[in-house]
Simulated scan of single mutants.
Amino acid sequence: MPDRQAVIDLLNRLTDPVTGGGLMDGGKVKGLVVAEDRAGFVLEVDQAEVARYAPVRDQAEAALKGLPGITRVSVILTAETAPAPARRTAGLSKAAVDQGRAKAPVPTDRPDHVRRVIAVGSGKGGVGKSTVAVNLAIALSQQGLRVGILDADVYGPSLPTMLGISGKPEYVEGKMEPHRVHGLAAMSVGLLTEASDAMIWRGPMASQALTQMLTQTRWGTAEVPLDVLVVDLPPGTGDVHLSLIQKTPLDGAIIVTTPQEVALADARRAHRLFEKVGTPVLGLVQTMSGDIFGTEGGPAEAARLGIPVLGDIPLDAAVRQAGDAGRPLTLDSPDGEAGRRFTDLARAVADTLNLKAS
């Protein structure tokens, strides 16, 4: 086990470009992890200071790799957009105030070597969105497609549990290597922090973390590109959603809901968000249908919204048990009722996007 104090001492031998003191003492290092053969942390800075801290991040990575016993290193540089000082806002119009704020990160394009990007979203949490995203990704992989999955829920990542993965990603030539599991390339903020850590990030910082995972992960190569990247969005319609939509051209979005009206109302909000920003909605997936929650809510809502029903996943304890065990249902029970529903969902998505194995 690498010595935590040795890591702290090493980081303090690096100069914080703002304070002039040690990097660790400067207060920008968050969530330091030292475990087994790995070390890493999040470097939180103001947006205006990103350029000054980028070399420091590289120095920290190189220094950590030089410590005995450490073979895996991850240092994430994330930035918070600072509001304009109060004295500058008095008596100014909203446009003038906005001009005085620090600028958001420069928009990015589609991640390198990824042919299609689709988002799985829901207005409400707890409706099975991540379960749909993971099983959809595996079912697409079972059709011979090269598939990646990005857990964009920076506040409540569930991908590590549902895929049974852990450990920090390695950096190779400035990019993170995703975990390779169950035929998928997988990345999650949950792999960059301890499982018990709470991500106490404001919206711009969460958005920056998502942007880095999206664009600084080696999803594919020029010779072997990814056919499709499935992005598991957090619940709601906030900063993370807007950042993804504004920075990355999406080929489509899937809305997940249970038959309950309280979930359907939030699904409508998610649909309006995608509509307003011009992201095509591929359709709706209803989850947990059956005697307890009913069966008609999702199809009726899809008809009102004018979108197809891509899938109807029944309430089945086996779906939950498989996800908790780290082996999603589509791996071991593809021929069961729920497994067949996920396979049908994958076929519908592949047909809609004209996805073909390469």
Rank of each mutant, 00 (worst) to 15 (best):
A51G: 07
D58G: 09
A119V: 03
G126H: 12
G26P: 05
T15Y: 01
L159T: 06
S122D: 05
S196C: 03
V45H: 07
S141Q: 15
A265D: 10
V114L: 03
P111D: 05
V132S: 04
S141A: 15
A95E: 15
L67A: 10
E223T: 14
D98Y: 10
V281E: 09
V56M: 08
E177T: 13
Q143N: 06
M205F: 04
V154K: 06
T81S: 10
S141L: 01
M176V: 09
S93G: 12
T258A: 13
T279R: 00
T71S: 11
G126I: 06
R52M: 11
R347T: 05
R115E: 00
G66K: 12
E194L: 14
T343F: 01
T108C: 09
A325G: 14
D197Q: 15
Q246G: 01
L159I: 14
M1Y: 06
G100A: 14
R327A: 01
E177Y: 01
S122C: 05
D351M: 00
V29F: 02
G21P: 01
L250F: 06
G190C: 14
V73E: 09
A54H: 12
T78H: 11
L244T: 03
V117Y: 02
I149S: 01
P235A: 12
L242K: 11
Q216K: 13
A322K: 06
L214W: 01
L92G: 03
L67W: 02
K168T: 13
Q260G: 02
Q212S: 14
G236Q: 11
V181W: 01
T89Y: 00
V127A: 04
S93R: 11
E337W: 05
H241W: 09
I70F: 11
V132A: 04
E80N: 15
P314C: 01
G297S: 11
V281D: 04
N354K: 15
V56G: 08
L136N: 00
V256W: 06
P169Y: 11
R268I: 12
G311R: 08
P235E: 02
M288K: 11
I313D: 07
P55I: 10
G326P: 07
G20V: 02
R218G: 00
A263I: 07
A79I: 08
V33P: 00
Q208R: 09
R101L: 04
V7D: 02
G278C: 11
V277H: 15
R52Q: 12
D232Q: 10
D98M: 15
I307D: 02
E61N: 11
V285D: 01
V42A: 13
G100V: 04
Q216P: 02
G27L: 03
T248N: 00
P111Y: 05
S289F: 15
K175Q: 13
G174Q: 08
T215W: 05
